[in-house]
Amino acid sequence: MGDQAFYPIGIPGQPWGVQERAAWLAKQGRQRSYADEVASAIDRLRESFDVFAYGSLDYGAEHYPLLAVRSRGWREDLPVLLVTGGVHGYETSGVHGALQFLQRHGHEHDGRANLLVVPCVSPWAYERINRWNPDALDPNRNFRKHSPAGESAALVDLLEPLRDAVLMHIDLHETTDSDESEFRPALAARDGKAFEPGEVPDGFYLVDDTERPQPEFQRAVIEAVAKVTHIAEADARGEIIGAPLLMPGVIKFPVKQWNLCAGITNARYATTTEVYPDSPRATPQQCNDAQVAAVRAAMDYALRHVDS
């Protein structure tokens, strides 16, 4: 795209400095309430789950408790089933799908497994419907020890003692039209790179791990979700977001190498969901339902194969 400005902040070809990051931050207004929409819903779960803060974030005058929900009567001899949502705060069904699962199905595996759910990893970004945190960092490229992203560092610390106990980890995401209109252009501008437009897939898909693929696990999740919403098809190149299709609705990335959330633990079964909320063929409730169907199918498969 040459020297043409494709984003309103920064100079094409030059990475952002302090001034550009401050200009970006100044544009990020609060659009919804983490306390009212998320923390209050988590608080209502205290009657039947253990709810606890695993850290907090202070951004300026704003304070965000980082909340997790786990089985009451946690047993060290049971495997752990892990659900994370809201790593990217703008991906709404990740947060509300996790909450809906807890409200309606959170006790399905009592006595067989320990459940741990972190519904909203990035509360500041949830309120601003954004992908990044206030430092213009993507938490989902920063899940590593001593991470520069506070959201990522807190979750890594929470899960460190459970790295080998987690049997299944499902991380709930969305791919939206704003990926192409805002977030990928912002990323290119921030890093001083050219922006190459891509294509947003219409439908649900999963991301498997290149290094530790589990195709039958992914297939089981896709089959369950297909009963709730449509599965994304490959583009003209046979790809979804630039990655080759492994099977209907499944691509793979080097999850641990990229410091993605689904690679924090050594879970045998791990996947990342991607729901498309901007589809004319899907409603917000359908997106939440798709996330719940994915969670339930992932857990059922993992527990059926726990000894295999």
Rank of each mutant, 00 (worst) to 15 (best):
L187N: 15
P254E: 07
A189H: 01
V255Y: 01
N140G: 03
I251F: 06
V200N: 11
G263S: 10
R184V: 07
P161L: 08
D202K: 10
L158W: 07
A234W: 13
M247N: 10
K145P: 01
R237C: 06
A220N: 04
D191Y: 02
V207R: 07
V250G: 09
D157P: 07
E211Q: 15
P248I: 07
D157A: 15
G150N: 00
R212I: 01
L206G: 05
T176F: 04
D208F: 00
K256W: 03
I240M: 06
L206S: 03
T175L: 03
P215I: 10
V255H: 00
N266C: 09
F253Y: 12
E199N: 10
I251E: 04
I170M: 05
P134F: 01
A154W: 00
Q214S: 14
P254N: 12
E151P: 08
P134V: 02
L159V: 03
T265A: 13
I240H: 02
V221I: 15
I231D: 13
E216H: 12
F183K: 09
A232W: 01
S152G: 05
L187G: 14
F183N: 08
N259C: 15
D208S: 08
H230T: 13
V200K: 13
A194I: 05
T210Y: 06
A243V: 01
R237E: 15
S152M: 02
P201R: 11
D135Y: 04
D171G: 05
L159Y: 07
M247Q: 15
L162M: 10
D171P: 03
W132G: 04
V156Q: 04
I222E: 05
A243R: 14
S178L: 09
H146K: 07
L187W: 14
R237T: 10
S147I: 12
A232G: 01
S181H: 08
A188N: 14
F253D: 08
V221K: 03
A165F: 01
G238N: 04
E233D: 11
F143Q: 03
P213W: 10
E239K: 05
N259I: 09
A236R: 15
T176Q: 14
L167G: 02
E182G: 06
G150D: 01
I170D: 06
A262Q: 05
E239V: 00
K193T: 03
P139K: 06
E182N: 09
A224I: 08
D177M: 04
D164P: 02
N140R: 04
Y205W: 14
Y205V: 13
V200Q: 12
E223K: 15
A154S: 11
I231C: 13
W258Q: 15
A243G: 00
P139G: 06
A149W: 03
N259D: 15
A189K: 01
N142H: 11
E199L: 13
E196L: 08
G203Q: 04
L155M: 13
K227I: 06
Q257T: 13
K145G: 00
T175G: 00
V228A: 12
T265R: 13
D202R: 07
T175F: 02
V207Q: 05
F204A: 04
L187F: 15
F195N: 04
D135K: 07
G198E: 09
D171L: 08
I240F: 08
R190A: 06
G203Y: 02
V255T: 07
V221W: 02
I231A: 13
M247P: 02
D235F: 07
G150W: 00
Q257I: 07
T265D: 11
I222H: 09
